[in-house]
Simulated scan of single mutants.
Amino acid sequence: MKTKDVLVGAVAGAVAGLVTGILVAPDSGKNTRKKIANKVDEAKETLSEIKDQVVKKGHDVAEEIKQRVDEAHAA
C-alpha cells in the first residue's frame, strides 16, 4: 500500500469521525453546519500540507536517484 493512500485514508477517517461526533452532539442546525464547514476547511488545509510534504519527498528522492545514476555512469 502506498504511503499517500494511507495518509489520505487516515485523514478521511479522522474527518468522518469528527463529522459524526459533531452530528451526534446536541446543537442547533446552524451551529452544526458551521462546525462541519470549519472541520472541512481544516481537513483541506491538512491534506494540502500532506500533499506538499509528499511532493517535496518525491522531488528529494528523484534528486537522490539522479545523483546516484550520474555517479554510476561516471564510475
Rank of each mutant, 00 (worst) to 15 (best):
V54R: 00
D60I: 12
A12V: 13
M1G: 15
Q67N: 15
V19H: 00
S28K: 11
E63V: 10
E45W: 03
D70I: 10
I36H: 01
I65G: 02
K57C: 07
D5G: 13
L18A: 13
I36C: 05
K51L: 00
K57F: 09
M1R: 06
T32I: 11
P26I: 05
R68C: 03
D52K: 15
V61F: 05
V54M: 10
A12Q: 14
V40Y: 00
G13M: 09
D27Y: 07
V6S: 02
E45F: 02
N38T: 14
D5A: 13
Q67P: 00
E63L: 14
A75W: 08
A12S: 11
K51G: 03
K2R: 11
V54T: 10
V24S: 05
G21R: 08
I22R: 05
K57H: 04
D70V: 15
A74W: 00
M1Q: 10
V8K: 14
G21V: 12
E63K: 11
V69G: 01
K51T: 11
H73W: 06
D41F: 02
Q53C: 07
T46S: 02
L18V: 11
K35F: 01
V40Q: 01
T20H: 03
P26D: 13
L7I: 11
S48G: 13
L7V: 09
R33C: 06
H59C: 02
K35Y: 04
L7E: 09
K39E: 11
G9F: 05
V19N: 02
K34P: 04
V54Y: 04
G13K: 07
G9D: 12
G58I: 06
L23F: 06
K51R: 12
P26F: 09
V19P: 00
A37T: 14
A10C: 07
V40I: 14
E71L: 06
T32K: 15
G17L: 03
G29M: 06
M1H: 12
A10N: 06
A16E: 08
V11Y: 07
K30E: 15
G29K: 10
I22W: 07
K57G: 06
P26R: 03
E49G: 07
A37I: 14
S48M: 12
T20E: 15
V6G: 01
K66Q: 13
E45M: 11
V15I: 07
R68F: 04
I50R: 01
G58Y: 01
V8C: 04
V40L: 09
